[in-house]
Design a protein around this nucleic acid. Structure first.
Lengths: 330, 330
DNA sequence: ATGAAAGCGCTAACAA
DNA sequence: TTGTTAGCGCTTTCAT
């Protein structure tokens, strides 16, 4: 590894001068600068970022904490964060917490010891106090929690309302909502949106809980139809869950959308791949990731934040799991 | 941030002693050790890994270079690598290269400057010489390239043969293979397996190229049926591609598996979510990731490698896109 | 058994 | 304009 000393020797100047030309600060004569630049090139010198980190107490790294990269909601988010980070010269470290507080704590410790410059939290098992004590820039992504930390979420409540209204407008009269885990804010907001609409409209409904995976939602759906065979509309709290619903209804011999209409939430690529393709509430996932990344980098670079809480619009993506002709029922 | 000096002061010993108890080497008296341990606990001291890195020229970080985390083949791989890394105390940095050599080079440079201990390459845009010059432990994952670097791949050639044979045994007589890009070794091997079987058996066939994404394969499939309406079997080089095939056939009014049988490759969770569920050649993706990670860590820790090239078995997963009754044709 | 001090590669304050 | 040097937090050699 060639160091700054090698460059200094080669260019016949001091290390300070080399440092000055690299960081473009301080006075350096034209000749000295050229000599240094040439030496850097000749030796193919790359400054050692560890040494830099040690001095500056920063690392040009940001941590992204997510529950599980295998869950198809997260790769796109991660990709967005990385793309933005790259353009600002940051490296992102993705950590899978499995919604386990010990893992989360472990990763946070490890990252702090590496002087990470900031954290994007798409998971939250710790208390806000814990997070606050970290004393580094933070952004909450997808799972909001409090007011004081910059947050990026989509309009889960409104999106859920629209989803429910869509099912009703297309003729569903007994609607089930498969909600996500109780602790998860996102799942709660969607549930509340659903609840408001069905209650307002006086629509028969039932709510059951499932995990955000296909297996759980499939099983829950089976039990649901066991008890309530006349359900004619389902709002699943995520697209992956909706896929589970489709599996279950297929097995039960119910037709989608003729017998049961289905709408998901998220708008991940999977939805389009399904047959029939999934009607869903699309979140701007990539955009959420980019905003979160920019918000974090702004904090790191001590720029003022104009907006603390981004609530992004969702939009309905019409697929084939809802009927095209309103009110028709086969 | 509390440093080793604070601990030393608190325990009334020198920093050398503190270092000794942390690293469990050198002689330390019982009393000194206890005092230090207590101080560490009291101050909630966490050693600074950047300083450590600077001295040791290692970072306990490994880099994982993949084309794109949004491609559903990679999250599980990444997850496996991370799980293993975690148990050995390593942090993994995932980098999306988009199969772009500049990006790959950029990331490799950035990682080297951070003293990453090793790299897992699930992408390869650079020459073997470039990789070799890096002079750090390497593992090639999924995309093998040469002999001298430890490699983990699955039996693409054999898997492709089995896939093709399955289609034939279940009655397909005019088979299309949608292969992946020419430069990709994996795609080549699968193509060669296909070719061997159809030629040996004298089965009518056609091969077209597509990218490893749904859009490309959908379009290619449409063109395929335009020219060869009598195709009755398709072997897609990946599951995502197979999803594209399903989309296209649906649109063309062809039934799967009655009119056309379909088999994919990979065994990603998506396959099961599809309706009908996908018959595919399942690779042990998670296992590949864990082996690659262990192989890398072994090298980093200077342990001998007993096997340089892992070629893992694939297995056929029967879904609903192939017929259950051989030779039956509706 | 323990401490003082040099050094990992870099930056910045201070001197010249 | 440039060089010398202390120091970022840690490890390890060399004295003691």
């Amino acid at each position: 590894m060639t160091t700054i000393r090698d460059v200094a020797k080669c260019a016949e100047v001091s290390v300070a001068t080399v440092s000055r030309v690299m960081n473009k600060n301080g006075y350096v004569s034209k000749e000295a600068e050229e000599a240094v630049l040439k030496a850097i090139k000749d030796l193919n010198y790359k400054p050692n970022s560890v040494a830099r980190s040690l001095y500056h107490k920063t690392s040009k790294m940001i941590g992204l904490l997510i529950p599980d990269i295998s869950n198809p909601f997260f790769p796109e988010l991660a990709r967005a964060v990385e793309d933005v980070a790259l353009t600002y010269g940051y490296t992102v470290v993705i950590c899978n917490t499995d919604d386990d507080s010990d893992k989360e704590r472990h990763y946070i410790d490890a990252l702090k010891q590496k002087y990470v410059d900031g954290l994007i939290l798409a998971t939250n098992q710790l208390t806000m106090e814990d997070y606050h004590d970290l004393n580094i820039p933070l952004v909450m992504l997808d799972r909001s929690n409090n007011q004081s930390t910059p947050t990026v979420v989509s309009k889960n409540f409104e999106g859920a309302k629209e989803a429910t209204e869509l099912l009703i407008s297309k003729g569903s009269r007994f609607i089930a909502h498969i909600r996500g885990p109780y602790q998860v804010k996102t799942a709660d907001d969607r549930y509340l949106g659903f609840k408001e609409v069905v209650e307002d409209r006086g629509i028969a409904h039932v709510v059951v809980e499932a995990e955000f995976n296909i297996k759980s939602s499939k099983q829950v759906t089976q039990e649901l139809f066991d008890r309530y065979p006349t359900i004619d509309g389902i709002f699943a709290s995520s697209d992956v869950m909706a896929a589970g619903v489709m599996k279950a209804t297929k097995q039960l011999g119910k037709r989608i959308p003729e017998d049961v209409q289905l709408i998901g939430f998220d708008g991940i690529p999977l939805g389009e791949m399904l047959i029939p393709s999934l009607t869903t509430v699309t979140q701007p996932i990539y955009k959420m990731g980019t905003i979160a990344a920019r918000l974090l980098i702004k904090q790191i670079e001590k720029q003022p934040l104009d907006i603390m809480k981004y609530e992004l619009e969702t939009k309905i993506t019409l697929g084939e799991t809802t009927r095209s002709d309103s009110f028709a029922k086969t």
